[in-house]
């Protein structure tokens, strides 16, 4: 069974069709990266998967369980981690509490167990020493690593990353990508939307190229980067390679 199956996913805002008929699936431990121009619905697609945005049609199955028909969506969200572009750490809580609140209040684990779990995940992202700090006292890169630890602490089946480095200063991007690289090696299943093409090439098992609410093509990094079937994919990636050459 596939870990995640998305079939004919549709979403429209008023007159604009944001997602036109998105279908794809993911295996356990796979790293799937979605690329494409801004405003093509990549972010909306992620948010439809955990229903932060309600889809208008289609089917989403997580381990065979219907996400759209689920009556208690919060049960399913516990199994789908999400890392946001704007971090969205809980401002009023310490780093430790940000990571611990899920296991403690949602999973209702004992405080000592939840604390240990939170600390273990903070160590994973290299921030155990900041456990007592507040989000406003951290750098952007640190905030995002806490965001990742918060998602990890729920021990989800899948983590979705919504442009995790787009709000970061260039010199802080590396530390976040480093953590994600480690997660991929550890076998975490990851669905990533990003514009970091170098990183995509290195980390992705499979790439989906999306434009105007549709999947233009998908395939391995070798195929997408070196021999894309569609002219549009080629054009899109060309912008990046041109940029690299100029640099």
């Amino acid at each position: 069974m596939k870990l995640l199956e998305v079939k004919n996913l549709k979403k429209r805002y008023k007159n604009k069709e944001v997602l036109k008929d998105i279908s794809f699936d993911m295996d356990k431990t796979e790293t799937l990266v979605v690329i494409g121009p801004s405003g093509t619905g990549k972010s909306t697609m992620l948010k439809c998967i955990n229903r932060l945005v309600e889809p208008d049609g289609g089917q989403i199955l997580l381990n065979g369980q219907d996400v759209i028909k689920a009556r208690r969506i919060e049960k399913i969200r516990q199994r789908i981690g999400m890392v946001f572009q704007e971090f969205n750490l809980f401002n009023h809580l310490t780093v430790l509490d940000n990571v611990r609140i899920g296991p403690l209040k949602v999973k209702k684990l004992q405080k000592s167990v939840a604390t240990e779990l939170a600390m273990e995940n903070l160590r994973k992202v290299g921030l155990a020493s900041e456990a007592k700090s507040y989000p406003a006292q951290l750098s952007g890169g640190q905030k995002q690593r806490v965001g990742i630890a918060r998602a990890l602490a729920m021990e989800p089946d899948l983590i979705m990353f919504d442009e995790p480095t787009s709000a970061l200063d260039p010199e802080l991007i590396g530390e976040v990508l480093e953590v994600m690289r480690k997660l991929a090696l550890d076998g975490m299943t990851m669905l990533i939307v990003t514009h970091e093409m170098g990183f995509v090439r290195e980390i992705a098992d499979r790439i989906i190229f999306m434009e105007n609410g549709e999947i233009v093509e998908s395939g391995t990094p070798e195929k997408i980067f070196n021999a894309p079937e569609k002219e549009r994919t080629h054009q899109f990636l060309n912008q990046f390679t041109k940029f690299w050459r100029e640099k």
Partner: peptide, 24 residues
């Protein structure tokens, strides 16, 4: 984004209001 983040870790609406929104 605070509410979205609360939902994303599986909090119910009431938990999100009580634990995340109201304290702020």
């Amino acid at each position: 984004g605070q509410m979205k983040a609360a939902f994303s870790i599986g909090m119910t609406k009431w938990q999100s209001i009580r634990l995340v929104i109201m304290p702020q």
